[in-house]
Design a protein around this nucleic acid. Sequence first.
DNA 1: GCGTTTGGTTTCATAATGCAACTAGAAAGT
DNA 2: ACTTTCTAGTTGCATTATGAAACCAAACGC
Lengths: 148, 148
Amino acid sequence: MVKRTSLENADCPVARSLDAIGDWWSLMIIRDAFLGMRRFGEFQKSLGLAKNILTTRLRTLVGCGILELVPASDGSAYREYALTQKGRDLFPILVALRQWGETYAFAPGEVPNFLVDRKSGQPVQKLEVRATSGRRLNSFDTEVRPRQ
Amino acid sequence: MVKRTSLENADCPVARSLDAIGDWWSLMIIRDAFLGMRRFGEFQKSLGLAKNILTTRLRTLVGCGILELVPASDGSAYREYALTQKGRDLFPILVALRQWGETYAFAPGEVPNFLVDRKSGQPVQKLEVRATSGRRLNSFDTEVRPRQ
DNA sequence: GCGTTTGGTTTCATAATGCAACTAGAAAGT
DNA sequence: ACTTTCTAGTTGCATTATGAAACCAAACGC
């Protein structure tokens, strides 16, 4: 993955995030990690991507602290890729992508799989952007302040 | 952009979303669109990407209904790229990317630019994943149900 | 009408991705 | 202990995407 953040965008957090996770495979790997996958072979089988590509992606994700290599949970000599706290904090991004996909990327007949609260079995609430006051905000209600 | 959703992932909304917007430039274009940019030249100057690449990305985004070509707002014969409702609904994804970047992609000394509520001037609330009951959920509290 | 700006297209070089064959170390069977 | 299989890669090569620069036509500004 090439760092493409140009100078004029360098202080934009969106650009910085995309430098870390802004390609198809990285986010799919992270999605699978949230589903509980931890082994090279699991990711490879699930995603069907070339092994050399998977190698570079996993290495990048470990390198930027989203995944870490830990001893295998089954006691074998192999190692597993586990989400760090930094990686687990990507959860809202995945949920946002999921909810948008549920809304817009399925034809009327198709049924997507659903993210549910384990306890209630109910789908999770739709993410909402809010002001500190709790008021709901859309994009027109907000602006980016160059510094602070 | 190549459709890479494999069969086993075809019913995952995350994969579907990434088919539409899962590359660096597309999301950067959408970010700029949220900042109010509408013209080819504006995107090109802001992002510094090659014009042929911008052409294909804009065409893809129009093709999947995230942007639409509208008559120029200044009355000229040129046309502008405007976010559709489908595009505006990407807002939570951008906010999630931004908040993660703010937290993790800046060194202690660096100050990111900030997304603020226009009215109060305050940064927006951190996005939270919640159950229908309102209880906060993390990734361990949730699971994906194959169909419904 | 004439030069400039806008929004592209075309061509060619370079970089990323994908595929298949190969490999070292660990595990499992016998 | 020895062989086989499994896991997690690496290597080499073909294909595809990306990027830089030159070129171009329609629209605009004067």
